[in-house]
């Protein structure tokens, strides 16, 4: 392979691209759409994974002790729990602190405040807030507590609600993923077929040249290469267009992400920038592979003579 042949291959490829410019534009657009749907899937995955992480970090179990249980008994239970391998932290909230926090939460509700005043005694028990190392550990921790001698001291545990939220998020994200995968799969299939068709049209346009090339002793590799290079052009331009569409789309979505994550401050744009090569590099490689194989199949029939 010499430089002259390489220049010739690129020239033929460029001619093929320009002579069917509208077909080229359609092909590039479909590739970009397919990649956009893949990136949409990535966005969904990243957002749901981050949301689950945020929620997981917020998940803890509150063990509400009976009001008559003494501080010593609660602290004994705390020591017992802290010894468990699955426990990250335990926080003790005394009866007085619990009452104070309760009053603060309901300071606008005069009925509740009046009721508390009428009762005189503190109706609230102490609370132990337990945080596990892994969210999967909570059922086991709850089981240990339930089977321990401290279970009778506890009035209520609040783990079930958190479990429901996490399951709901997981279900929604699983369903969105399934739909996203199907949509991306369909787009990728369509993109493959469009590239196949575009290359076939390009070959048809060049059929005379191909015949003459074969007649004068051009190798199959030389004849095939311009079409492969042309499909490279489609892959590269399709990916560039996808990048050009994805980033403005991220800017549109970001305010909603900010509203959802509030203080956690998750930036999709930063995520895509820091994973730029991994995301778009792999997408480009896969698109090139798909295009090259699809155009190789398209041209095979014309190289038999």
């Amino acid at each position: 392979m010499n430089v002259a042949a390489l220049i010739q291959i690129f020239t033929f490829a460029w001619q093929g691209f320009w002579r069917n410019i509208w077909l080229s534009i359609v092909t590039i657009t479909i590739i970009a759409l397919a990649l956009f749907s893949v990136n949409f899937l990535i966005i969904l995955n990243v957002v749901t994974a981050t949301a689950i992480d945020v929620i997981k970090n917020k998940v803890d179990v509150s063990l509400y002790f009976r009001p008559e249980i003494t501080e010593t008994q609660v602290l004994e239970a705390q020591t017992f729990l802290s010894a468990l391998a699955q426990i990250e932290t335990t926080t003790y909230i005394s009866q007085q602190d619990a009452l104070q926090a309760f009053r603060q939460r309901h300071q606008q509700d005069q009925t509740i405040i009046a009721s508390l005043d009428e009762l005189g005694d503190n109706p609230l028990g102490a609370t132990l807030i337990v945080k596990a190392k892994q969210i999967e550990d909570y059922p086991e921790i709850i089981s240990v507590v339930t089977n321990s001698k401290y279970n009778d001291l506890i009035l209520d545990k609040n783990f079930a609600d958190n479990q429901v939220y996490i399951e709901k998020i997981k279900n929604v994200s699983d369903n969105v993923n399934k739909i996203g995968f199907a949509a991306a799969g369909i787009f990728i299939l369509i993109a493959g077929l469009i590239v196949f068709n575009t290359i076939r049209v390009a070959i048809y346009t060049h059929r005379e040249e191909i015949g003459i090339m074969k007649l004068v002793g051009a190798t199959n590799w030389f004849i095939r290469s311009p079409f492969i290079v042309e499909s490279f052009f489609y892959a590269i331009l399709g990916t560039v267009l996808a990048v050009a569409v994805v980033f403005p789309a991220l800017n549109v979505v970001q305010p909603y992400i900010d509203a959802f994550f509030l203080a956690e401050g998750f930036s999709l744009r930063d995520y895509f920038m820091s994973h730029f090569l991994a995301i778009f590099g792999i997408e480009l490689l896969i698109t090139i592979l798909l295009n090259v194989s699809s155009s190789s199949i398209a041209i095979r029939r014309y190289l038999r003579v």
């Binding site: 015949g211 003459i212 004068v216 051009a218």
Partner: peptide, 24 residues
Amino acid sequence: FKLLEKKTFFENIAFALQACGTSW
């Protein structure tokens, strides 16, 4: 003849050479 109508005579012959990797 099998000549390419949109190419000059020179280009038709050059095409045969270039198809086999000959420089311009």
